[in-house]
Simulated scan of single mutants.
Amino acid sequence: MSIELRILAWGCLLALIHVFAAGRVRTKQYGTKWNMGARDEAVPPPSPLVGRMERAQANFFETFPIVAAAILMIEATHRTSALTMLGAMLWLGARVIYLPLYAAGIPVVRSVAFMVSMVGIVMLLWPLLR
């Protein structure tokens, strides 16, 4: 299995981490009864941490399908290379550090991590667009 596909698998695990991390802080704020119920009742606004975790999760799921499609296209067209491997590694590494940076409310470094992940995505797409 290529490194790019392995990174895609790790990205799937990271997606689950986003889901469970956001769910955990939401449940901590609203309670287990809310979490296990139909969630029909009105709830107070999310705490800053809950809001950051929800936004981090949404941000991840905005870019993850692009990465997944790019890696699968690279594999299908046999265009894996040092560039695509580095792009996938940059994307995953940046996304791994993005979540705790966002959770901690660290603004500038979080944006740098996001931009590094975007560079990784461009590196994945580049061979497909030439």
Rank of each mutant, 00 (worst) to 15 (best):
L101E: 04
V108H: 14
I106R: 11
R110Y: 03
L92F: 14
I97N: 06
V67Q: 14
V96E: 05
A103E: 00
H78P: 00
I74A: 10
V112G: 03
L92M: 12
M73L: 15
E62T: 13
M118A: 12
G93R: 07
A88M: 01
M89P: 00
V96D: 05
Y102M: 04
V119F: 13
G87C: 07
S81T: 03
A113M: 03
S111G: 10
A113F: 02
R95D: 03
P100F: 00
P100Y: 04
L90C: 07
T84F: 01
E75T: 15
F60Y: 14
A94N: 06
A113T: 05
G105P: 01
L92C: 08
A88K: 02
P65F: 11
A88E: 00
V116Y: 02
M118P: 00
A69K: 07
A103I: 06
V119L: 15
A104G: 13
I97F: 03
G105S: 10
A88L: 08
G105T: 05
M73S: 14
F60R: 05
L92A: 06
R79V: 02
R79N: 13
F60I: 04
T63V: 12
S117K: 06
H78D: 11
G93N: 02
V67E: 11
F61P: 06
S117T: 04
G93A: 07
F61C: 08
I71L: 11
I74E: 09
H78T: 08
E75K: 15
W91P: 02
A94V: 04
L90D: 03
M115R: 11
A76G: 11
L72T: 15
V108Q: 15
A70F: 02
L90M: 13
I74R: 15
A82H: 09
A88Y: 05
